[in-house]
Each structure stands twice: as structure tokens, then as C-alpha cells.
Nucleic acid binder design. Structure first.
Length: 236
DNA sequence: GGTTCCGTCCC
DNA sequence: GGGGACGGAAC
């Protein structure tokens, strides 16, 4: 991830431990989750405010950080999909002391048949940031959305260790899935018309979600009522 | 039996 | 590395 996740060293009064703060969220859309069978890297998740000219990196100091995927909804359970990248031998990434960046991470989705096995593997790595029940079913896990979860272990001068509370990013959605992808206008015959109405506007869209009627509100009339009703058509 | 989704292939 | 195509599975 080319996003900046930084440690805040302001101590919590009771614990006198630093807290983890996500200062740059991952870009939530625009990346397609990739299957392992595609035999390629899964790309690099950009930071939400990343631009062509400036790419940010996570900044971490004197800590051991584990990054893994968890479910979008609370409680954040381990997600069967895997984090992949150069530094990711497993479905999660463990960074040791003095490593600063989390570049080139992608999300590799797991086949339906292999979901259980994937979670079993995560269990064997002992990664369950929020101590949820790993044996629970996978029926209610959204396969088109994940969050990054950052865990941090501090090692003090005297060798003692402390675990910080894990933090999660905002959700990251699969670009390929119709349910989570952004509505895309593929054709539009007009982009304006008189406020007296009666102008027919045709709009063809890709990635139309079933759950949404595809209504665009015309704010110029101030009523808040939909002024245009558009029929979406999936071109797929 | 039609439609949507999944997993894979390939440009 | 982004994204379309497509066959078969699932709904």
C-alpha cells in the first residue's frame, strides 16, 4: 500500500503506550481483487490522496507490525482473501523492527471452495487481530470488501513487549464486483436541458447496482425530488 | 430456462 | 498491470 500509516507516540494516560493511527486511508475503489490462478501480481493499492507525482509510504518505527485482511463489518473477523506482495510470503504480512514501507500490496481473492482452507491457514499463523471466533461460518462475510488491519508490537529497551490495539483502514472494495464497483456512465446523449423539463436524456451505464434504482437528483430545482429518472443497463 | 456471478484467459 | 471476454456454475 502506498498509503501512510504512522505511529502516534502520544501515550494513552492509563496504558502509557503509543496508539496506532491511520493517517492516510487506502484508496477504497479502483482495484480489482485478483485470483491466484491469474498468475500475476495483484497490483498496488494507492493511498486515498495519492497522485501521480506523490506516492506515500507507511511510516513505522521500532515496532513489529502485522498487516492482514479483516471483514468490513464489526466484529472485524479474519477475511479469507489474502494480502499479497513482495514482502508477503503468507496471507498476512509481518514487518520486523526498522522496516518502514508497505509498498506493492494487492488483494488476492480466494475461490469459494477454498475459503475455509484459507481461514484455517490464517488460524495456523495465529492472526486474528480482534480475537473473533475463527470457527464461525463464512456465510456472512462480504467477499467484495475488506479492510486492512494493522497490529503493532513494541519492544522496549529491556526486552519487554507490548501489543498496541489493532487499527483498521476504511473498507476497500473490489472493482470487478457489480455490487461494490462505482457506477460508470458509458454513453450519454445530452448533458444539459432547460429547467422547464421535457427533455429526454438517455444514459447507458455499466456496473449498475440492483439495490439502487439509478435515480439522479436534480439539485438545481431545490426540491430535493428526483427530476430525472434514468434506466441503467448493464452492458456486461 | 433466463440471468447473474465466478473463475480463468487473454489482449 | 488494467480491463474485457467468456464458459460454466450458481441462483
Amino acid at each position: 500500500i502506498d498509503s501512510l500509516h504512522e505511529l502516534s507516540w502520544e501515550a494513552e494516560p492509563a496504558l502509557s503506550l503509543p496508539t496506532l493511527v491511520v493517517v492516510e486511508e487506502p484508496k477504497d475503489r479502483g482495484m480489482r481483487f485478483r485470483y491466484e490462478c491469474e498468475g500475476r501480481s495483484a497490483g498496488s493499492i494507492l493511498g486515498a490522496s495519492s497522485s501521480e507525482s506523490s506516492k506515500t509510504q507507511p511510516a513505522i518505527e521500532k515496532v513489529k507490525v502485522t498487516v492482514s485482511l479483516v471483514t468490513k463489518d464489526i466484529p472485524h473477523r479474519p477475511h479469507p482473501h489474502c494480502l499479497v506482495g513482495k514482502d508477503c510470503p503468507h496471507s498476512s504480512l509481518i514487518k520486523l523492527i526498522h522496516i518502514f514501507s508497505f509498498a506493492n500490496l494487492g488483494i488476492q481473492c480466494v475461490r469459494r471452495k477454498e475459503l475455509e482452507a484459507s481461514l484455517q491457514k490464517r488460524r495456523s499463523l495465529n492472526i486474528d487481530p480482534f480475537q473473533t471466533d475463527l470457527s464461525r461460518g463464512i456465510e456472512d462475510i462480504d467477499m467484495n470488501a475488506v479492510r486492512l488491519c494493522f497490529q503493532c508490537e513494541l519492544e522496549w529497551e529491556d526486552g519487554k513487549k507490548d501489543c498496541l490495539k489493532p487499527v483498521v483502514s476504511k473498507p476497500i472494495y473490489d472493482k470487478k464486483a457489480t455490487t461494490t464497483s462505482q457506477l460508470k456512465i458509458t454513453r450519454l446523449n445530452l448533458d444539459r436541458g432547460p429547467c422547464t423539463g421535457k427533455t429526454e436524456v438517455y444514459m447507458l451505464c455499466d456496473k449498475v447496482q440492483k439495490a439502487h434504482p439509478g435515480i439522479v437528483e436534480d439539485c438545481t430545482q431545490g426540491s430535493g425530488h428526483p427530476a430525472l429518472s434514468l434506466f441503467g443497463q448493464s452492458l456486461g
